[in-house]
């Protein structure tokens, strides 16, 4: 039977899909799960990512990493700012989806504004963090000794369950601003804001593969992320204790950097930028 709305049109219903390498595929496994609002009503069926989707996302992130890191900080800042612009544009959709998650309209709007502002705040750091975290070190000898921060590489992010949008933005922005690429496992209970966010990314000049967003079950995906030798760091901000433990165990094989173990879900701090960088130190002879 065909559903017809009162206006006599056919419903055009949206398929909520994954975001991998700048594209919107369904899960290769063909699976989906039901996303519900705070009252238990069905909102949508969303893709349930499998380990193979995660593998493809990591592959895309690894491929994108070199060029993204090679862009000037200024350019990355422009792109982050562009994300904020497009989020602002889709503000009403975000607010509605957060409302479905249980927020009052006023609180939902406030969260959207906070998320946009946070993206703008991190955009500003793009061409400044290396001045702050880099240094000309004093050494006893005829050398310049320079330390500079460099991106860690491919970062896996287990996004907080709530706040569904602000949590995602707060954990993602400090990762990508320095040139890392990201594979995000979105909030399991409220995946829709993350999917709308991926549509924002699609129209924000973010190169394919820099940010990949998987909807699904963190408990299923996190072990594969933790064990993946091509993932250099994992943000655990959204991981429940059992998942966190499993990620820590998996991370030993290639000594992944683990961040977000303190449980903050909407932190705004330059130290979070520093957490996903490695320090390169160069010695250069002086007076030659």
């Amino acid at each position: 039977m065909v559903n017809q709305s009162r206006a006599g049109r056919l419903d055009v219903r949206k398929t909520y899909k994954l975001y991998i390498n700048g594209e919107f595929p369904r899960s290769e496994s063909g699976r989906s799960y039901v996303a519900r609002d705070s009252e238990g009503e069905v909102l949508a069926r969303v893709a349930r990512a499998s380990r193979k989707d995660l593998r493809e996302a990591v592959r895309a992130a690894r491929t994108a990493e070199e060029k993204w890191a090679a862009k000037s900080g200024y350019n990355r800042g422009q792109i982050l700012y562009r994300i904020a612009e497009m989020m602002e544009d889709r503000g009403a959709v975000f607010a509605e989806q957060l409302g479905d998650g249980g927020l009052t309209p006023a609180r939902a709007r406030a969260e959207v504004s906070a998320a946009v502002d946070r993206m703008v705040w991190y955009a500003g750091w793009a061409d400044k963090f290396s001045q702050i975290y880099g240094n000309l070190n004093p050494v006893a000898g005829p050398f310049f000794n320079i330390s500079a921060p460099e991106p860690t590489g491919v970062v896996g992010i287990i996004a907080p369950e709530t706040p569904a949008l602000l949590g995602l933005v707060s954990r993602l922005a400090p990762v990508i601003v320095t040139g890392n690429t990201a594979v995000v496992v979105s909030s399991e209970s409220q995946p829709l804001p993350a999917i709308t966010f991926s549509e924002v990314l699609e129209s924000s000049d973010v190169p394919p593969g820099v940010i990949n967003i998987l909807t699904g079950f963190p408990a299923e995906l996190a072990p594969w992320l933790a064990d993946h030798m091509d993932v250099n760091a994992v943000d655990l901000a959204g991981a429940v204790p059992e998942v966190g433990l499993r990620v820590r165990q998996g991370a030993v094989h290639n000594v992944k950097r683990l961040v977000g173990t303190d449980g903050y879900t909407d932190l705004q701090s330059p130290y979070l930028i520093a957490a996903f960088t490695e320090t390169k130190t160069v010695w250069h002879p002086k007076g030659l």
């Binding site: 690894r62 594969w224 064990d227 993946h228 030798m229 091509d230 094989h253 290639n254």
Partner: peptide
């Protein structure tokens, strides 16, 4: 090993 691999190694 059951772990996805990286070209780095």
């Amino acid at each position: 090993t059951g772990r996805y691999q990286s070209a780095d190694y």
